[in-house]
């Protein structure tokens, strides 16, 4: 429960953090520490230097603009929950944040840390994918922008190079508030066994103008359930139709057996939770 020895450096600017990342041996960025520190205490991670980025002002920006929300990487979960404007414009995000862990973790954990860590069961993964988040990175070569669909490369592997820093996440505010995040927590860890983010927009005649759904936890990687969009776009919603759409959407994931949770069970859970999230989003 004691990490192996490491150096601690605090960066004041993004440039300084990037320098430290380059210069210090086996350096790792420290954000809220809610994923990194447990790994270090179990000695599963042994960074040579921790570069603390929590005091970098640029990373603490948090703006709800007319067309998009800009979330600095160091914005903490509890700040997301406290933002009233966000609750009105992108209710999906606070809904997801509200079911992450517990108040202690939510007071330290950051949006950027979650994105960088890329846990395949993290709640925000579904939100990023469903709402087309864009990740803005800084590296030795300057700025790089990555779309959510290109972000999750593997379990615990985001599209982020060891010498890069995630500065902010931008999420377009393109959807009406028919949004829902529903989570079936793992009975032990509380992470999502299936977490579903759903966004629905309706045409004046009530038919589905557009819909986007993404799933975290259930599959080997978080995924956008494109089958749902294909099944529902232009259609008038019904229970039957949502059920079929959920079936198709769940089929977009790749599932593996994991202890008592068989691949078949996981896919079923994805289907059920998609269906329920669709129902909830369209009723909201």
């Amino acid at each position: 429960m004691i990490p192996s020895a490491f150096r601690y450096r605090r960066a004041q600017t993004v440039a300084e953090a990037l320098d430290l990342l380059r210069q210090e041996p086996e350096a790792k960025l420290l954000a809220g520490g809610q994923s990194l520190l447990p790994l270090m205490k179990l000695r599963l991670a042994r960074p040579g230097t921790l570069v603390d980025i929590s005091r970098i002002d640029e990373l603490r920006r948090f703006e709800v603009r007319p067309d998009r929300v800009v979330i600095g990487a160091m914005v903490r979960y509890h700040q997301v929950l406290a933002n009233a404007e966000l609750r009105a414009r992108l209710p999906l995000l606070p809904q997801a944040v509200a079911v992450i862990a517990d108040p202690q973790v939510r007071h330290r954990g950051t949006v950027g840390g979650s994105a960088a860590h890329a846990d395949p069961a993290s709640d925000l993964a579904a939100v990023f994918l469903a709402a087309d988040a864009e990740f803005v990175l800084q590296g030795p070569q300057g700025e790089r922008r990555v779309q959510a669909r290109d972000w999750f490369l593997g379990p615990m592997m985001s599209n982020l190079q060891p010498d890069e820093l995630l500065c902010r996440i931008e999420i377009p505010l393109a959807w009406p508030p028919h949004q829902a995040y529903l989570k079936f927590p793992h009975p032990a860890s509380g992470y999502a066994l299936a977490g579903v983010a759903a966004l629905v927009s309706r045409a004046p005649d009530g038919s589905v103008e557009d819909v986007k759904v993404a799933v975290t936890g259930a599959g080997q990687l978080p995924f956008a359930a494109q089958g749902v969009t294909a099944a529902l776009k232009g259609q008038t919603l019904s229970r039957q139709l949502m059920r079929e759409a959920a079936e198709r959407g769940a089929a977009d994931g790749t599932y593996a057996d994991d202890g008592p949770y068989s691949a078949a069970y996981r896919q079923n859970l994805a289907r059920v939770m998609i269906e329920r999230a669709l129902a909830k989003a369209s009723e909201s």
């Binding site: 079936f184 009975p187 066994l193 008592p260 949770y261 068989s262 069970y265 079923n268 859970l269």
Partner: peptide, 8 residues
């Protein structure tokens, strides 16, 4: 009687 046991 965990969810997968019951479901299966």
């Amino acid at each position: 009687l965990s969810p997968p046991v019951v479901w299966e």
